[in-house]
Write a protein that binds this DNA or RNA. Structure first.
Length: 454
DNA sequence: GTAGGGTTAG
């Protein structure tokens, strides 16, 4: 193909390709060139996404001083020592904003993160927020430094900052490193953290174990616990998911019976899990049987159920059958969403059905009032690039450009709010509509909160 | 984190 971008999966990768070989940019139409130059200016040398205005200059200066001092390869104690003894650093007072920013930057470098974290704790008038503690626990857990993670957890306990969310993270990290017994131990010791052993916390433990395929262990623990903690529908769905995950569909069926025995009705989640299991086996006869059974049980399949089946059909190269399924879904009045269309477009692309994919993107989605998001664009661009249709890829890029502009608008909006410049109601309304159209849900939420105050 | 994407870049 004429384009020097053989595999394009995201805007970022296009951007990187252009940075790597600037001559690439000549292949791009004007609209995309404009886009790239705007992208280029909105990444500074540190890879931060947007330029920082004056209001955050102090913060930025502190970040620069600290990061210059931290260096690499030291232990966290060394980092702490060098920070404490540095004159320039001494002029900096830690703030929660500053610490969170640095923890974000060093999320893949636990020694630097912990060094900074301890440096802040060293200031007697500074206290870490719960958010910073959770971030620190997460960094150490992800890097599998379990001992240090335990130390931070202990500090949190002393400050009474531990929530079930914190515990859930810790459990999942243990189970993720195959130390499932430690996850169970945390649950056993829950009262140490001032938390209760109840259905909710039990479900967290069972879900953690099941997600890491320790389903039998979870089952044994549950058999003990159920005498004094009542299971609920979630509990059973967690097990159904677990059994399906390790491809033991018989046990999943058995769990359905068990949940009925407890007076819990199997729901669309229970059935969708089992359907997914049959989908993995490409046992579509059973899938259709289950769909019928759901209908008979007055438990309608939803868009997630249909997405699961549609993906599996497409993967099994049963494209026409996938189209029939979409029709069946529409006939039941089940509305497709963005994720469904993304999967559909992706599947059609892989099957070489470019025209069909284009039709879904251009006609079906707007008609259903479903907005594309970045993944939709990515699927379309990847497809066009794979089949060497650069014209099509650029068409999608053009559309993305418009929505990138919206992100910029939102960044400016946030800066205004930060500086206590109150936007007009009408400005908010315009931005909110636009932000909703392209699925920037978090942005929409922030704008809505502000609008309520107006 | 009780269920659904994102070719396989390095």
């Amino acid at each position: 193909m004429g384009l020097k971008l053989p595999k394009v999966t995201s805007m970022q990768s296009i951007y990187r390709a252009v940075v790597h070989d600037p001559s690439c940019i000549c292949c791009l139409p004007l609209a995309s060139r404009t886009l790239f130059s705007s992208l280029a200016t909105c990444h500074d040398a540190e890879g931060r996404e947007f330029p920082h205005r004056e209001q955050s200059q102090d913060l930025t200066r502190s970040v620069d001083i600290l990061t210059a001092k931290i260096g690499k390869g030291n232990s966290e104690e060394d980092i702490l020592r060098s920070l404490i003894s540095d004159e320039a650093v001494n002029g900096i007072h830690p703030s929660q904003n500053l610490i969170n920013r640095l923890l974000c930057r060093y999320k893949n470098d636990w020694k630097s993160a912990l060094g900074i974290f301890k440096w802040a704790s060293f200031h007697s008038n500074f206290k870490h927020s719960q958010e910073s503690y959770d971030m620190m626990v997460d960094i150490l857990g992800r890097m599998k430094v379990m001992e240090k993670m335990g130390e931070i957890l202990e500090e949190m306990r002393e400050e009474s900052l531990i929530t079930l969310d914190t515990i859930a993270k810790v459990m999942r990290r243990f189970a993720g490193t195959r130390q499932w017994k430690d996850a169970v131990r945390i649950f056993d010791d829950l009262q140490i953290f001032d938390l209760e052993k109840n259905t909710e916390s039990m479900n967290v433990l069972l879900d953690t174990l099941c997600k890491e395929k320790f389903v039998e262990q979870a089952r044994e623990i549950y058999v003990e616990l159920k005498h004094y903690i009542a299971p609920n529908a979630h509990t059973f769905n967690i097990f159904i998911h677990g059994w399906c995950k390790i491809r033991r569909v018989e046990e999943a069926h058995w769990t359905i019976q068990e949940m009925k025995g407890y007076g819990c009705r199997p729901c669309v989640i229970s059935y969708s899990n089992i359907i997914q299991c049959y989908c993995q086996e490409q046992n579509f006869d059973r899938v259709y049987e289950l769909l019928d059974e759901m209908q008979a049980q007055n438990c309608s399949p939803n868009v997630i159920t249909y997405t699961i089946i549609m993906c599996a059909l497409a993967k099994a190269k049963k494209i026409d059958e996938a189209f029939q399924l979409v029709e069946r879904m529409n006939s039941t009045g089940c509305k497709p969403d963005t994720l469904f269309y993304n999967s559909f477009i992706y599947a059609l692309g892989r099957a070489g059905r470019i025209d069909n994919a284009m039709h879904v993107f251009k006609v079906a989605m707007p008609k259903a009032g479903v907005a594309p998001n970045t993944s939709t664009y990515n699927s379309m661009i990847s497809m066009f690039c794979f089949y060497a249709q650069e014209e099509g890829a650029f068409g999608i890029l053009k559309e993305m450009e418009d929505s990138d502009r919206c992100k910029w608008a939102f960044v400016l909006f946030e800066e205004m709010v930060d500086q206590d410049i109150v936007p007009r109601y009408r400005t908010c309304r315009l931005l909110l509509d636009e932000v909703n159209r392209i699925n920037m849900y978090e942005a929409a939420e922030k704008i809505e909160i502000l609008m309520k105050k107006l």
